[in-house]
Design a protein around this nucleic acid. Structure first.
Lengths: 340, 340
DNA sequence: AACATTGGCTAAAACGATTTAGCACGATTT
DNA sequence: AAATCGTGCTAAATCGTTTTAGCCAATGTT
């Protein structure tokens, strides 16, 4: 567990430093180092538990064998699971991952990109705050390998892996209609992220497909940092006496939990008084009374695909961009009642 | 966003490389470089967005400014939150964090320790599988700076930050007794981890403090990879007709969720038929019917303290070991009924 | 006038690897 | 006998920094 340098090895075996280096890098045959010498070197290196100094190697080769991952927030399970998958996949290919959270701040994200760049990561995987088009453009300009996950910039052509938000919400609308919903509300966030915009589009298109009227009062958009205070008013709007909705789609898991708390405090019974669907999975949703019907996102696949694409980019060094839109899943539970 | 080396800067300003280096490291005054030269260098470096090459620096100084974090599983919220805090704290002090998950495997953990060591991290924070005493001893032997969090080796003197598991469970027992529980069961894991052993000890001591008899049939220990299948039998044991328990303490959040599923399927009403307390918080526990009373762990504090201790160790390079046992919290909800 | 001090820098070595170019020797070819 | 080739290695340069030792000119001291 202590440090033997290539010099120590060379000295001890009476060979030159380059000879050791070549053999250790499997270039012994190519450089016609005799089998015998090769074996001596390999054996002794093994004994000494020799590991090349990563800084020396990085300095010479300009390669770090590190990938950077930037996400909004590691304590959100959603991102934690993506990262866990990325780390596992990257390790399989000899890459170490360093990650950092941007806290949804464009400025922090920008700093992180630069800092990772300075640390010579070979590629980046970014779930962007979407407030940082400048850096994304800069990365693209210098042809630095990166892949966006979950969040992308629709106006910038990049590699990305995202989820079919439109389709996901449409499937929720369709299911609610089948269960007899007539007036479907939509509680979402201020449409700062493309993903959120698309969930709204999915809602609209879902209504259209089912020949239902779009009523703007049925849509409530809360701020992501104060939704807990705003939820009550939002529900008031949706539940006004004469035109009360009989179903609600929540566009994120935390809106769902927050909304359920509020509905409970109004003594509304799910699904009798109101049916609900959550876009985005949360672990205990099956434990609630009633269990909550959800649109699920293919979290692990996103991690896998992002790494695949990044590694391919690293290998081919091409300028082709690869885009993937993954399908959502749907788990029917009791929060929408029965299909009629 | 491109690369200017110290050489380029030196050449352009007609000064030597060391001069630039000294100024950039704030040692200009100490080395009596004229104010004027210092300003020229700083200004131009700024313009060129000069960042020292991290490999060259690391090579020369033998310092990486990286910390390694090894945890069982990043997709467990508990560890995700710890890591998020560690990352934030470390960044404040100029350290980058690299982390990896051991998947509770001693072998994987050992590989990770070695790989991080090879990557020249300056210190490690480890939530150990506790199957890897050898490496921990080896690290200790060479006086490598590391801190254990959440999981420690009671037989090895190291720095660590853990939670008062005994006290936490005792507070659960006390509360249940106050609510009128007479026969308290305990559902836990096979005692492979010290933390789990201590939760059991807390249960025993809690009973003792309340002058209740310890009945071994009231304790069920499940395997961590098959607890879902075993839960049903475990509950059967606790709920045998004549001697059925009237309260259960679950020793982890996932045992709690699993247990609740089973209790529901038996149509047992919480807290009327049975009272429950969960050791370890889970986000939706307040949303269940009834909301679940929990023993909370000071997750963020653990992250903070671990980084504090590690940085102090790095600074002082002493051999003193620091141990901290953090207190648990307790949130009373309705799953234990009312205090009588 | 000889010596010491200060100010303002720089030369050169070092960190540990990789890479390029090429040497020395014997064997083979012409 | 000279030229060529193959074998098995090594010397030296290089990557971008930091650090140690010390140079040279100007000024101050005795």
């Amino acid at each position: 567990m202590k440090k033997a340098s290539i010099k120590d090895i060379a000295k001890h075996l009476n060979v030159s430093v380059p000879t050791v280096s070549l053999v250790m890098n499997g270039r012994g045959d190519e450089k016609r180092i005799s089998k015998e010498t090769q074996e001596r070197i390999l054996k002794y290196a093994q004994e000494q538990n020799y590991k090349p100094n990563i800084f020396a190697k990085g300095l010479k080769k300009g390669r770090s064998e590190m990938l950077g991952v930037i996400i909004p927030n590691i304590s959100d399970v959603f991102y934690a699971r993506i990262v866990s998958r990325i780390e596992k996949d990257a390790a399989k290919h000899g890459y170490t991952v360093i990650f950092s959270s941007s806290q949804e701040s464009g400025k922090k994200e920008s700093e992180l990109i630069r800092s990772m760049f300075d640390r010579q990561v070979e590629g980046l995987i970014i779930a962007s705050s979407q407030k940082n088009a400048d850096d994304i453009l800069a990365l693209k300009k210098i042809n630095f390998p990166f892949v966006l996950v979950d969040r992308h910039y629709p106006d910038i052509e990049t590699d990305y892996v995202i989820v079919d938000n439109i389709g996901g919400v449409k499937s929720a609308v369709n299911h609610l209609v089948k269960c007899g919903a007539q007036r479907i509300g939509f509680i979402s966030l201020k449409p700062e992220l493309d993903a959120i915009k698309n969930r709204f589009l999915g809602y609209q298109q879902g209504l259209e497909d089912n020949e239902m009227e779009y009523i703007s009062e049925y849509v409530q958009e809360l701020k992501s940092d104060t939704f807990e205070e705003e939820m009550s008013d939002a529900l008031d709007c949706l539940l006004q006496k004469h035109t009360a909705v009989d179903a609600i789609i929540f566009s994120t898991h935390y809106l769902t939990t927050c909304g359920i708390r509020e509905l409970r405090s109004r003594n509304l019974i799910i699904p009798n008084d109101i049916k609900i669907v959550s876009f985005d999975q949360f672990k205990a949703f099956d434990l609630l009374e009633p269990p909550i019907t959800v649109v699920t996102q293919p979290v692990l696949d996103m991690g896998d695909r992002a790494v695949d694409i990044l590694l391919e980019k690293l290998r081919l060094k091409d300028k082709v961009t690869r885009q993937e839109v993954l399908n959502t899943g749907f788990i029917v539970r009791k929060s929408c009642g029965e299909i009629k």
